[in-house]
Design a protein around this nucleic acid. Structure first.
Length: 513
RNA sequence: GGCGAUAUGGUGUAACUGGUUAACACGUCGCCCUCUCAAGGCGAAGAGUCCGGGUUCGAGCCCCGGUAUCGCUACCA
């Protein structure tokens, strides 16, 4: 396929999601994935999965496979991707670095980009000064104005550099002073170039930033419609500038509302379970999750009066609908732009609806595939075998593996020599340490012990606290192994819910005083 | 701070594109059913559509001006 010849106005649609393998697969990815998938399905187009692994500092090696698995689990199927191939691969950005370098060079040659030799420290200093002066923090280094000779000299001197986009600012004559693009949901959006930074395109490690890689790939892969989250609106002018610099035809842009926490901020793991692994392990059905995601931001058309009459009693639009219903009725033009709060309570209700609709056999199968799978029980069994006298005690000892609402009382989790406040402060640090930890016994052990040492807590105190939070009890199967079996997503979720509950309790107690 | 986007009960959406008392779902509360808890059934409270002007016979839908919230403001995506 030669993307040069794709006429984006009339060609069959090609869309994509582009997750970054930086951790657990995210509900937001499933949300945007669903939208892209529907868009392609409705128009007989292609849905592509591209892995954007250009950030080497945040790269997590296990993440990519988890993304594949999680997306397959929810039932989203891509036509092209790193694992299934396709005509415009490779579909992993780390395998395309040569391409980016080549296109970056073109930009430098045409004057649309330049090498910047400022160090991160210099940039940081500049930023601070600008903040102090209350002006917009923007790149303002001398490299932008280097002559070819000066640049050559700096390269020859071995100075590391980044490549930055030269945003036209009218400095030499009356250049273009603003960029306007059309958002298919919002209409025209204009950004003055004074507010568009000279974005880094190529980092000093040779990897591209999102902005360059994304535009180059979208063009080379023939993407006709960029359907992504609202947080990208501000950087779209940079992307438009890049398309123009290359002389490429623009795709259509559709910016979707951002999923929110209860407090309306962008959905985050601190305030919401956000890992798809969590939802799978906690026993949500993929159909229910997809259905719920389809509700976010509207989009499902109301039945017309004709439909109501012809289809009889089905007067109201039900909140319950399948992916097939969505393919038939979901209307992108109807999407409402307010950021929808991701409401776990309603998701649970909906999951319950789906659970109840299952036949007894299907329900049994669902249990056996998730919470009561052989794999899970096999992993748990050795932890209790030496600790029980009858098989009947298995349940007593392992209840917390199968439960959702574990909440220890303060007398259980506060060590004798500590106050509640001390304990919660320690727990906060412990949670932070666990969040960044790998999930095997050695790593967790190290994370806990590091926190202990830092806070001058005894080993016993620290592990007891963690045990209480995980199991709701002071006696349990071996802690580290239990944590591993229970999984990072669910363990951390339980820990966060514990912190949340304690915070609420503390607030209540304060009000009582 | 700057720039951008957004705004309908606590939450998600609807209101046939200006036309009667703003509808549905979740949640909350009450009643019924029931050995319990759910589920199910019935019912209630809860918004006058962010605020202020304007246009119009008529505005949640149009115009102007505010406000609030969110996002971006990285060699992260």
């Amino acid at each position: 396929m030669t993307s040069e010849f794709i006429n984006k106005a009339t060609a069959p649609v090609r869309v994509r999601i582009a997750p970054s393998p930086t951790g657990d697969p995210h509900v937001g990815t499933a949300y945007i994935g669903l939208l892209n998938y529907l868009f392609a399905q409705q128009r007989g187009g292609k849905f592509i999965l591209r892995i954007e692994d250009t950030d080497r500092t945040r790269f997590v090696s296990t993440s990519e496979q988890m993304i594949f698995d999680a997306l397959r689990w929810v039932g989203l199927q891509w036509d092209e991707g790193p694992d299934v191939g396709g005509p415009v691969g490779p579909y992993r950005q780390s395998e395309r670095t040569e391409i980016y370098r080549e296109y970056c060079q073109k930009l430098i040659d045409s004057g649309h980009a330049y090498r910047a030799f400022e160090t991160p420290e210099e940039l940081e200093e500049e930023r601070k000064a600008q903040m102090a002066a209350k002006t917009a923090p923007k790149y303002n280094g001398p490299s932008r104005y280097y002559t070819a000779e000066q640049a050559e000299a700096a390269i020859a001197a071995g100075k590391p550099y980044t490549v930055r986009l030269r945003v036209p600012n009218g400095e030499k004559g009356p250049g273009v002073s603003s960029t306007t693009f059309r958002d298919e949901l919002r209409g025209d959006i204009t950004f003055d170039h004074h507010n568009v930074d000279d974005q880094v395109l190529l980092k000093s490690d040779g990897y591209p930033t999102y902005h360059l890689a994304n535009v180059v790939d979208d063009h080379l892969m023939g993407i006709t419609d960029v359907i992504r989250a609202e947080e990208w609106i501000s950087s779209t002018p940079k992307h438009v500038l890049l398309y123009q610099a290359f002389g490429w035809e623009l795709p259509r842009f559709w910016h979707m509302p951002l999923l929110r926490n209860i407090d309306k901020s962008k959905i985050s793991k601190r305030k919401n379970p956000v890992s798809l692994i969590y939802y799978r392990q906690a026993g949500f059905l993929p159909q229910a999750l997809l259905n719920y995601l389809g509700l976010m931001g509207g989009g499902m058309a109301q039945p017309t009066e004709q439909e109501i009459v012809s289809k009889g009693l089905d007067m109201k639009l039900s909140d319950i609908f399948s992916i097939e219903d969505m393919k038939e009725k979901f209307d992108f033009q109807r999407i409402s732009l307010g950021g929808p709060v991701f409401d776990l309570v309603k998701l649970k209700w909906m999951n319950g609806e789906y659970l109840r609709k299952l036949s007894p056999d299907e329900f049994f199968t669902a249990l056996r595939q998730t919470i009561l799978s052989d794999d899970y029980i096999k992993a748990i069994a050795p932890l209790v075998q030496t600790r029980i006298e009858t098989l009947g005690q298995f349940g007593d000892m392992t209840g917390f593996f199968f439960a959702d609402n574990i909440m220890p009382a303060p007398e259980l989790f506060v060590p004798k020599k500590r106050t509640l406040e001390e304990t919660l402060a320690f727990a906060t640090d412990l949670l932070a340490a666990l969040e960044t930890s790998d999930w095997n016994t050695e790593a967790i052990d190290a994370a806990v012990r590091a926190t202990l040492t830092a806070k001058e807590w005894s080993v016993k105190e620290g592990f007891m606290l963690l045990r209480a939070i995980l199991t709701g009890s002071t006696a349990s199967p071996p802690l580290l192994e239990s944590l591993v079996v229970f999984g990072k997503a669910r363990s951390l979720d339980r820990f966060r819910r514990f912190m949340e509950a304690q915070k609420k309790a503390a607030a209540l107690a304060n009000r009582g005083k």
